[in-house]
Simulated assay, not measured.
Amino acid sequence: MKKIELLSEEQLQQRLCDNLTKHELPDLFLYVGEEGASNWLTLDSSDKFTVARKLTELLRSNVSRIVEFIPGHGSLVSVGVGNGEKERIILKASLSSNDPPFYYPIDVSSQLVDTALESVKDLPVEKTGMVGMIEDLALLRENWISPALFCILGNTFCNYDPDRILGLLHENLFESDIFLFDCHLLTDSDASSQEIEDVEDIYRSEENKMFNAHPLINAGMTAENIEFDLRLLPVESEIGAIYRTHKTLTIKRNDSVDLCSKKISFEAGDVIHMGFTYKYSFEQVASYLEKWGFGIIEQFFDVDGSNVLLLTRKLSEKNNSGE
């Protein structure tokens, strides 16, 4: 097993310092370091955080069909790999093939890449972990063998701006690659108040609050001085209103963190803005795929239609509306 690091922990810590100085905390910093990785694995397995578990079961129930789309002499590449559980399901199902894929787990967290590699150490496939960001995709793809089944699983696709992520993928994936991703869905674009409340309840859990606040707590801030707030609100887009979470951490009393050999101070009432998660209807996901020139090969829904797993491919010409 090998590991390629395009991003060091020192670089990530400097970026964290720069962002906190601007009262920003992008979500990628929640996963880094030993504590970040451990906190994510705890949250991911929590009974209250049901999204991850349901998406894993959706993958497991359809994996025999999915492995048919792993290209011969190709790779399984997964960005935001987490603990590697979902990728192990795919790899294990692919072993009946005479040509098992090369495996490239990718994450911004070096510790999570290690965990993902360790989870498949018993499987007879060549493995190379990579530490980097999705923005490094052009550099990352130089290290894997094409064609690939390229995966963004665990609802991670919804944590990116749709135009940004699909534009990046269209630029860097080949027509011979297959793009596999999943989404936790709203039933339709006009979400009911109950559906909004259900989503907010999931993400407002105490476990999720501590996961989001841990970079500050780990750097010396008192947990009781941090107030976590999350709301699911409609935002306008080219395809109409779509829902997106708005996350903030409000500092309740004067406090500070120690990072990069310096103290960053916050005053009571300061608001730190965080990342987001989009909540789409299936029709909205399909509209964005069409806009950026991706065709749906096959789609898999769970029983109540609240989650979808999609196999897609970059088409030969991008729709002009995505230019």
Results as ranks from 00 to 15, higher is better:
residue 203 Y to G: 10
residue 29 F to E: 03
residue 285 V to D: 05
residue 308 V to Q: 00
residue 50 T to C: 04
residue 67 V to A: 06
residue 264 I to Q: 06
residue 39 N to F: 00
residue 2 K to R: 12
residue 32 V to N: 01
residue 205 S to W: 07
residue 215 P to A: 06
residue 168 L to P: 00
residue 162 P to V: 09
residue 160 Y to Q: 13
residue 102 F to C: 08
residue 119 S to I: 04
residue 279 K to S: 12
residue 260 C to L: 04
residue 279 K to Q: 12
residue 87 E to F: 03
residue 35 E to T: 13
residue 285 V to G: 04
residue 112 L to N: 03
residue 285 V to A: 05
residue 310 L to E: 00
residue 174 F to K: 15
residue 81 V to F: 00
residue 273 H to S: 08
residue 22 K to Y: 03
residue 44 D to W: 09
residue 119 S to R: 04
residue 207 E to S: 08
residue 296 I to N: 08
residue 194 Q to H: 14
residue 81 V to T: 05
residue 84 G to M: 04
residue 102 F to A: 10
residue 303 V to L: 14
residue 198 D to R: 05
residue 3 K to F: 10
residue 170 H to N: 15
residue 219 A to D: 04
residue 121 K to S: 14
residue 232 L to V: 12
residue 41 L to Y: 03
residue 260 C to P: 02
residue 139 L to E: 13
residue 211 F to D: 08
residue 286 A to K: 12
residue 66 I to D: 05
residue 253 R to S: 09
residue 117 L to K: 06
residue 264 I to V: 11
residue 130 M to G: 02
residue 265 S to A: 11
residue 168 L to V: 06
residue 164 R to L: 15
residue 173 L to E: 08
residue 137 L to N: 01
residue 191 A to K: 01
residue 143 N to T: 09
residue 190 D to E: 15
residue 154 G to D: 05
residue 309 L to E: 04
residue 225 N to F: 01
residue 253 R to Q: 10
residue 176 S to Q: 14
residue 263 K to Y: 02
residue 313 R to E: 06
residue 84 G to R: 06
residue 33 G to P: 03
residue 151 C to V: 07
residue 110 S to M: 03
residue 176 S to P: 06
residue 246 H to N: 14
residue 189 S to A: 13
residue 290 E to D: 15
residue 142 E to F: 02
residue 117 L to A: 06
residue 11 Q to R: 04
residue 312 T to G: 00
residue 89 I to D: 04
residue 6 L to Q: 12
residue 218 N to F: 03
residue 182 D to F: 07
residue 6 L to P: 01
residue 129 G to H: 05
residue 59 L to T: 08
residue 5 E to V: 09
residue 95 L to Q: 03
residue 171 E to F: 05
residue 162 P to D: 08
residue 50 T to G: 02
residue 299 Q to A: 14
residue 212 N to V: 11
residue 10 E to K: 03
residue 187 T to Q: 15
residue 4 I to K: 07
residue 32 V to R: 02
residue 121 K to V: 09
residue 140 L to R: 04
residue 50 T to M: 02
residue 189 S to E: 14
residue 139 L to W: 03
residue 133 M to H: 13
residue 256 S to D: 00
residue 118 E to M: 12
residue 114 D to Y: 05
residue 106 I to S: 01
residue 24 E to K: 07
residue 314 K to L: 09
residue 282 F to K: 10
residue 293 G to D: 07
residue 249 L to N: 05
residue 214 H to C: 03
residue 21 T to P: 01
residue 211 F to C: 04
residue 112 L to S: 07
residue 256 S to Q: 05
residue 282 F to W: 13
residue 66 I to P: 09
residue 110 S to E: 12
residue 98 N to S: 15
residue 208 N to S: 09
residue 71 P to I: 10
residue 200 E to Q: 14
residue 155 N to G: 06
residue 300 F to Y: 11
residue 120 V to G: 08
residue 229 D to G: 11
residue 131 V to E: 07
residue 284 Q to D: 11
residue 310 L to I: 03
residue 126 E to F: 00
residue 173 L to D: 01
residue 91 L to S: 06
residue 216 L to Y: 08
residue 38 S to E: 15
residue 50 T to V: 11
residue 78 S to E: 15
residue 172 N to R: 07
residue 255 D to A: 01
residue 227 E to R: 13
residue 106 I to F: 06
residue 180 L to I: 01
